[in-house]
Write a protein that binds this DNA or RNA. Structure first.
Lengths: 140, 140
DNA sequence: TCTTAAAGGATAATGATTATTATTTAATAA
DNA sequence: TTATTAAATAATAATCATTATCCTTTAAGA
């Protein structure tokens, strides 16, 4: 999902293409992904002060309903949003509360193969997400 | 972590062993694990109506700080608690919002082996949690 | 027991989210 | 291009979970 796709997706779903929706989507993208509601609202307040907070909440809700964004959760108490729909996992550092996407086709394949053999009783797998918890190492 | 251990853990951490703490811990265990704050408070209200809600919040916070409980997050908006400290993953059904623990030593080994070879740049792995999303199949 | 720091209880305050309702607007067709 | 209308937005009030405050009680150790 990128900015250009948004138009089409909204149209296909029968949702109106409004400036507010574009602005909210841009905000999530510009904030580098995984922003919290706070961050999104703050960003929009700065750049488009005439958009109502209630509208932002409603748009986020609409986007999640229609699969345009996903909600991500960490151990902390805030909701965060993710616009990348391509299959990926998350690197998460508790101390800094930082999240990064982690793409790894080999890993996906490994997991899929594994669960083709090893069936889980009474459960049909649709999707798998690995949360890799640790520390980011800053290189000086 | 089981009920019997709680005493020792509290004592070792220099935390006081209070009836309220025991009751909150029991509530989480009795609720079958992964209960939401709501469920915990409701359960305690029914069985011990003289415990303050604020106290329950404070105890949950204390338990998380000291690793006695962990917070679990789903895609939904509520906080849930997990007392099982043994390494495990989660089966999660979006529709019913149900979570089950999933133990799989082979899987743990597979993942560990995989990441021994495949290093992630600038990241030191401490822990991995697989969230397996899908549907529970009820058998009639 | 006595002492004291820690913990609990009650309630107010906070703050994020949701609901409400009037107004505006995007989309469609005439 | 304009008119129509359902959908979307804005503003604000209401809600509700969580946190803070402050006073009282209690667990733990001397």
């Amino acid at each position: 999902m990128n900015k250009a796709d948004l138009h089409n997706v909204l149209r296909n779903k029968g949702l109106k293409i409004t400036p507010q929706r574009i602005i909210v989507f841009d905000a999530v993208v510009n904030l580098g992904n995984h922003p919290s509601t706070d961050k999104i609202i703050e960003h929009i307040k700065n750049n488009h002060p005439n958009i109502s907070v209630a509208t932002v909440y409603k748009i986020l809700e609409t986007f999640v309903e229609h699969g345009i964004l996903k909600r991500v959760k960490t151990g902390k108490d805030v909701m965060r949003y993710d616009y990348e729909l391509e299959k990926h996992h998350h690197l998460y550092a508790k101390d800094s509360d930082r999240i990064e996407d982690y793409y790894d086709a080999d890993l996906n394949q490994l997991l899929e193969k594994y669960f083709e053999q090893k069936k889980i009783e009474n459960f049909k797998i649709e999707e798998m997400k690995l949360q890799i918890i640790g520390k980011f190492i800053e290189n000086k």
